[in-house]
Design a protein around this nucleic acid. Structure first.
Lengths: 343, 343
DNA sequence: GCACAAATTCAAAGCGCTTTGAACTTTAGT
DNA sequence: ACTAAAGTTCAAAGCGCTTTGAATTTGTGC
């Protein structure tokens, strides 16, 4: 059933029917109801392409999937997407996933824009001077950034307080009496990773604890790397008595490394991990339960979708940015340092 | 730049330019090249909505995200999507993710269809008599199923040999001398879960080993449940000396439970897990490395996208289905049973 | 050179919706 | 009762592309 047929059925013009359905004010209340009822009855629903062609909006948001197996497409992705899609569907917006080909991100973004298949783009995992962001600002193409950059030009973004997360984690460990604290986080260059290191350094320096550069690791997030790096860290003398992990996957590897060295978790070696909140990986149910810095990536997705709508509605982008605080949830994997003899 | 302008620039009609760009045969070779060059030069690219409106195809594939945190949207999702999107982008097809609202799957599918926003749908995680499948067949709406059902009516699907996977795993454990083998898999009702149990039973019964119903667990996939259920299993007497886990997440929990009971992995208690192959969770790097039944869910995504294209091209759906074999990769987490005294 | 077929190109009619600008009704004010 | 204003409805013109059916150009055989 198309608009024309529905209009004929009702003895009305297409104009009126269209307006009734789209909630325009100049339609008589009785007429509107009659139209709605008929639409429901005949199962009418506007052809999206025709509507979008007429309206000049694509009705889709783009997100590029890096094909280099980078951190930007890990296990948190599905959670983030869930959050996004949940909100976008309220406005009948689609989420278009487009893969990056040939490892050329910038030109993939360019292609996505010029193909006119999306109204806006979501950019994730930025570096401090992310060139995708620079490019999108230059092209004046609407986007929201999940994360932050040092780029001055106004743009919309949502980030969590990564520095605060690691600062809190490190401070807590210092409070417990740890003197040798290591961190294993994501790749250098990424804002979140740099900010976390900053927070970590602030905490240590604030207490006059020297920063040992060997104790700062930047690598991809995976259990394997968590394991390997933690093993290395624990082989130093003195070795760290606490490790802060940038992701749950990394933390799993660190858990294993600590155990395989024969140390007791939360005693001889403590661990705090950053948790994006996954339904299938529960920090509180680990053994020992894991102290985490927590921030729901799902909620971030929902919120970013909301910001996107605001951007598309023309709200000035300089007004659209947020930093979310991160909670430190104390559990059993962090405790005062215990030397092996003492237990 | 729009088609009309490009045509004017070239001194050609829209018809010819359109045809040149879309590879129709009735265009002079020289003309076609001239057009292509001009298009590249001006950065012309057809308006997707106009094109789709004219052509009558939406150019998007739909996938519904259950909002009940079910197994259908776990950590494997991003891998599956990657695979899908990679192939779909070759045909300029978008992937549309739509959330299920109000927990009413069927009506969510109905809405997606009647909204005419997708040309076809991908259905995942089916039950044996999945009503979504029945409905889509009835509505004659194109779809490909990731998984299998017992529904007779022809439809396109791709599944892995789940029965074979668990049969192999169980047989291997029996070969090693295990007599008490448990399995922790996904929720009952789901085809993959039922098939796996079938394979498991076949292996045991083939050797005349009795099946203990307490040793068959069907639950959601998560580390937490893996841990809890494995603990329960290990508290029986006699307890299982080997556990087959349906997912890597579950396996992580099982690992912990085995350790927390003080058993040595691969010795007193063995474990084999099914691995969908995640870049961030590597079975071969665990300690001990994990024996797995392996099948790349990413490749499955790519293949399903391919099948989808065939369905849309009108190939008869009864010809479109595949069962993929699953490899058993032997590693250290499975070994002959050792009673605690012996080690 | 000519007739006819083959190869190219074109003008115009959709695809199904939104929206402009005009027309028609009803209401309100005097 | 008459007019201006407000409230409703409508016809028709796009939105930018594909495709039909016709027109034009080029090529072939004699």
């Amino acid at each position: 059933m198309k608009l024309k047929e529905l209009a004929e059925q009702l003895g009305l013009s297409q104009t009126t029917v269209s307006r009734a359905l789209n909630g325009y004010p100049e339609v008589n209340k009785a007429t509107r109801e009659r139209v709605s009822r008929a639409a429901a009855q005949f199962g009418y629903s506007a052809n999206v392409n025709a509507r979008r062609l007429a309206i000049g909006r694509v009705g889709a948001i783009g997100i590029l999937m890096p094909n280099d197996r980078s951190e930007r497409f890990g296990p948190h992705t599905s959670e983030f997407f869930s959050g996004l899609a949940e909100r976008l569907s309220q406005d009948e917006m689609d989420l278009l996933m487009s893969p990056v080909t040939n490892n050329d991100e910038i030109s993939a973004y360019r292609r996505l824009i010029s193909s006119k298949r999306v109204d806006a783009i979501i950019v994730t995992g930025p570096t401090l001077m992310d060139e995708r962001v620079t490019m999108l600002i230059e092209e004046k193409f609407p986007f929201v950034l999940h994360g932050r950059t040092n780029i001055e030009a106004p743009h919309a973004w949502l980030d969590i307080d990564n520095a605060g997360a690691f600062r809190q984690a490190a401070s807590h460990l210092l409070d417990l009496g740890h003197k040798h604290i290591a961190m294993i986080d994501g790749l250098r260059g990424h804002t979140f990773s740099e900010h976390r290191e900053l927070g970590y350094r602030e905490a240590l320096q604030g207490r006059g604890v020297p920063v040992d550069p060997r104790f700062i690791v930047h690598e991809r997030f995976s259990d394997e790397i968590g394991f390997r790096e933690a093993q290395r860290l624990l082989s130093y003398s003195p070795h760290p008595t606490a490790i802060i992990a940038g992701s749950m996957m990394t933390a799993l590897g660190v858990f294993r490394a600590i155990r395989s060295k024969g140390y007791e978790l939360g005693k001889e070696v403590s661990i705090i991990a950053h948790d994006d909140v996954f339904p299938y990986l529960n920090a509180s149910n680990m053994v020992p339960s894991m102290t985490t810095t927590r921030s729901s990536i799902r909620s971030a997705g929902t919120r970013i979708a909301e910001m996107l709508v605001r951007v598309l509605d023309g709200e000035p982008v300089e007004d659209i940015h947020e930093v979310w605080p991160v909670e430190l949830i104390l559990r059993q994997s962090s405790g005062p340092p215990v030397s092996p003899g003492e237990r």
